[in-house]
Design a protein around this nucleic acid. Structure first.
Length: 421
RNA sequence: GGUGAGGUGGCUGAGUGGUCGAAAGCAGCGCUUUGCUAAAGCGCCGUACUUGAAAAGGUACCGAGGGUUCGAAUCCCUCCCUCACCGCCA
């Protein structure tokens, strides 16, 4: 959520910045400001009426303590009660309307985010390793040959978009998870967390999944709670409504959780295989920091995720996402794409985003700065990484033609063997 | 799920219808004094919204939402959460 004061003080700037994403967002600014204007007028009237009521009531109290008659005053207060009620209702509605409008305005892009209308304008900022194109088998065939997973039986249980990992295949995912978590906790200093998967509406609103993307989420109990689409939701909201001490920032959290997504907008896309699932595991990195730390923390967070791919000997590239392709709550994002030889393409396995105070304002997450003033924190998140696509890249990269899957060295300890025959 | 007790400022904790945004203590900040790693005294010390050029005002907030009342932290109702005990259960 953007700061309404920024919109009031410099609407031109806000419109310009939103236009970098898409001109349609600029048009929202005037609507918000019109509502803000009406809201403040109503609020001022309510406050004046209440002030008058408080004054009279206080007077009644004093008179009563002197055993004097107060009928006239009481009648006076009563006479404006109805009007006050109506105005309060108006004011409340306008407040809600303004919040709703504001919740649907995306974050402003970072000054360094490259301009561009769509994904084709994303910028490759670096790459690592050689994406060999040796006509490897597709991970579906490899998984079948090695006996790692079963899609047909998964569809009996849950329909399409689910997988059952079987035997060594299940163990391989567990090994990957343990490897990733140990890397982030022991080498990069993140605190490991085990988080709830069902969260309340306000929590989903805090990180920006609601209200705009409700159709992408799995709700339960008639929409009172939601299955988290990423641990970003639970981890970032962990300190919501709190005031942190500057000295404890940045906070660095990591959790591996199942993630649930309807993928309703992607019907038909990536239907086969592990690439787009309704449920998948993901190791998520979250940082909460002060504004001056945020740029640097995004760089290190991205590096922390990249390190995992390097240790697994998986070639990848890093894309800087342009304004037109930027996620709703992000001001700057680096995507990590791992090379999948069987697909002949790069797969997005991580999206590392800097969110400024956009989420923190929504969830009222603050810290006390050096002057003792409360200020909104900045939040960052990134995958480290999503499991299924990492799994695809691992299979397609390290399985020998008609041979075993040779595990990269760091994984062998976790898997308990050096290969899967 | 049942019963009971609770939810007040960064923390502890008083406050059962009127001048209470809320005592006191701790923590924090500032000053004074004395001085061996500190003590004592004094002062300051919530948040959000809003009016105003500013100075300075106003409104709201005592778990959430309703209600009673001229007036609610305080009374009533509903819900949520915490704690204790019981029941059930991985």
């Amino acid at each position: 959520m953007l700061d309404i004061r920024l919109l009031r003080e410099d609407p031109t700037f806000v419109k310009e910045q939103l236009a970098r994403r898409d001109p349609v967002f600029s048009e929202m600014v005037d609507a918000v400001l019109a509502c803000d204007q009406k809201r403040r007028e109503a609020e001022t009237q309510v406050q004046q009426l209440r002030s008058e009521r408080n004054r009279l009531s206080k007077e009644i109290g004093i008179l009563k303590s002197h055993h004097q008659r107060t009928d006239a005053l009481e009648r006076e207060v009563k006479s404006s009660a109805h009007q006050l009620e109506l105005l309060e209702e108006t004011s409340r509605k306008l407040q809600e309307e303004q919040r709703t409008l504001l919740l649907n305005v995306p974050n402003l892009p970072h000054r360094n985010t490259p301009d561009g209308s769509d994904a084709s304008k994303n910028v490759v900022v670096r790459s690592w390793g050689e994406p060999r194109n040796k006509q490897n088998e597709d991970h579906l065939l490899l998984g079948e040959r090695l006996g790692l997973f079963d899609f047909n039986r998964a569809s009996k249980l849950s329909g399409s978009g689910y997988v059952c990992l079987t035997g060594k295949g299940a163990r391989l995912e567990r090994a990957l998870i343990n490897f990733l978590l140990d890397l982030q906790t022991e080498e990069h200093g993140y605190k490991e967390m085990g988080m709830p998967l069902l969260v309340n509406r306000e929590v989903m609103e805090g990180t920006g999944q609601l209200p705009k993307f409700e159709e992408e989420m799995y709700g339960v109990d008639g929409g009172l709670q939601f299955l988290t689409p990423t641990a970003e939701v639970s981890l970032t909201n962990f300190y919501r409504d709190e005031i942190l001490h500057q000295r404890e920032l940045p906070l660095k959290l990591v959790a591996c959780t199942p993630c649930f997504r309807r993928e309703s907008g992607a019907a038909g896309r990536d239907r086969r295989g592990l690439i787009r699932m309704h449920q998948f595991h993901k190791v998520e990195l979250v940082k909460i920091c002060s504004p001056d730390q945020a740029d640097e923390e995004l760089a290190t967070l991205t590096g922390d995720a990249e390190r995992a791919l390097e240790l697994l000997e998986l070639p990848y590239r890093v894309l800087e996402i342009c304004t037109g392709d930027l996620g709703f709550h992000s001001m700057r994002t680096y995507d990590l794409e791992v090379w999948a030889p069987g697909q002949g393409s790069f797969l997005e396995v991580s999206s590392c985003s800097q969110c400024g105070d956009y989420q923190a304002r929504r969830m009222n997450l603050r810290y006390k700065n050096q002057e003792g003033k409360n200020e909104f924190c900045h939040t960052l998140n990134g995958s480290g990484t999503a499991l299924p696509r990492l799994y695809v890249a691992l299979l397609e990269t390290h399985t020998q033609p008609n041979g075993p899957l040779l595990l990269p060295e760091p994984l062998q300890f976790y898997f308990g063997a050096s290969s899967i025959p």
